[in-house]
Nucleic acid binder design. Structure first.
Lengths: 256, 256
DNA sequence: CTGTCTATATTGTCCGACAATTAGACGATC
DNA sequence: GATCGTCTAATTGTCGGACAATATAGACAG
């Protein structure tokens, strides 16, 4: 194979070359301090005036930088407090942002389902390995809530919680962060599915009970296998409900 | 099981109750227009002065709102352009934010690896299903780049690209978004692994070649199986390199 | 030690201003 | 006709200063 057959990413030869503004450099500087742990979560930032002095810029400039960091979730204020503090970017916020990105991208149901199919079984297996008796009890409580919930909305909410708790039990924060937005986006279609497929809720319950049982008795393989079936069930449910697999989930407004 | 055994998430009964500032309401208003597709990606925003007029606030206030949206990745400018446009929140930005969140959370290597283990094989399978001949060629080019790259840094960069391209080929944006930050965080330790384990690079190459072959011939099962082995290899490599599995990846500064 | 009050500091917003840069119009040149 | 300079107006990034609202801290009384 000749060398010429090895395409190298061409891309534009030159980058747009953007001189970065002061406010941007300032936010970058602060961000770096945070990432390097010089500033740690909980620490209070200097006041805007002080920052303006230190960076030798106008307060407005500082403010723009701060708004940027605030939106990035790196700083924020707790309660009605006045002073900004370093905050570890909450999973909730990051997850909701991921959800927004996906929603705006018109992600389809099948894409979300594929992701679930990849992630959920392993998560269940890990939950079986690492979960405590107490967390297993909570999980069971959630399944009960799914059963006794009045109305599809509530039931779906608990199903989402089921997966959330599962991810938490796995002790794997990456999986937690992956699972959360996916389930949240899946929820609306899940609701429609339950509405249209009478036996849907029962099937969900059966599968979840088996998963919980496998987890409580510490059998990762079984938990994984049941979860696989559970996820497969989801898809079958959608097909039964006549929901097209390439339905865009973003169409449903995402709660924020 | 009595009802009292079903704990309901308690959470704080009252929210901190914060009257939201004008700039916040403005950014929220614009964000809503974007989410509802009234403003679509590519559209140019009015100028700051116009916005200031429409919202009847001072330009500084508008600016703060814009910086917030900018950091949220909802608006941005292309090239050295002056005017802000709606941008579909770049996967790159969202991914980098996810990476930051995980890094600040002191995610360990094993957590990332578990996520890879869950996601990568399915991604490879999907890539084998959906990939085109052309994208397969690109993938092969990347593998060649891994082989011929001078220096571990470059090689690792190409490995990251390999997974990125794979996710792209799967046509699944959820998996793309999941894969990207994980690989980015994994990269530094991957580099150390290659440094210390002489045969590491070769093993990677062999596995990747097999994966590419499976994808080109459209064999999802084989692609999935080879990818599983590939990921397993990763872990073995780390063990050989004497890298503790609970190494916090956040310790290594994340390139931005 | 707890609760109330007051002075101060800090934030959110506003006004106005200016240099640097960009977008767009308008000819000049090949 | 298309490309290239050049000029002008619009726009952004930053600045200096100002003020009301309110959180914080200290003083003081119970």
């Amino acid at each position: 194979m000749s060398e010429s057959s090895v395409p190298v990413y061409k891309g534009p030869l030159f980058e747009p070359l953007t001189r970065q503004s002061a406010s941007l450099r300032i936010s970058a500087a602060i961000e770096q301090k945070i990432m390097r742990r010089t500033l740690r979560p909980g620490d209070a930032l200097p006041t805007e005036t002080q920052l303006a002095e230190q960076f030798a810029v106008h307060r407005s400039t500082i403010r723009e930088a701060l708004r940027r960091l605030e939106s990035a979730g790196l700083v924020g204020r707790e309660g009605g407090s006045k002073k900004l503090r370093i905050t570890r970017p909450g999973h909730a916020e990051t997850a909701s942002r991921v959800g927004r990105t996906l929603a705006l991208d018109d992600v389809t149901f099948i894409e979300l389902w594929e992701a679930m199919r990849a992630v959920a079984p392993r998560t269940a297996a890990l939950a079986a390995q690492h979960g405590t008796a107490q967390s297993a009890a909570t999980l069971e409580a959630i399944v009960n809530a799914v059963e006794t919930a009045r109305g599809a909305d509530a039931a779906v909410g608990w199903v989402v919680d089921f997966f959330g708790k599962l991810a938490e039990m796995s002790g794997n924060r990456v999986l937690m962060l992956a699972m959360q937005p996916v389930m949240k986006l899946l929820a609306p279609s899940l609701r429609r599915m339950i509405d249209r497929v009478p036996q849907g809720r029962t099937r969900i319950l059966v599968a979840q009970r088996c998963i919980v049982e496998a987890i409580r008795t510490g059998k990762p393989d079984e938990a994984e296998a049941w979860m696989s079936r559970h996820v497969q069930d989801f898809r079958r449910g959608y097909e039964l409900a006549g929901i097209a697999l390439d339905t865009r989930v973003g169409a449903t407004p995402v709660a924020d």
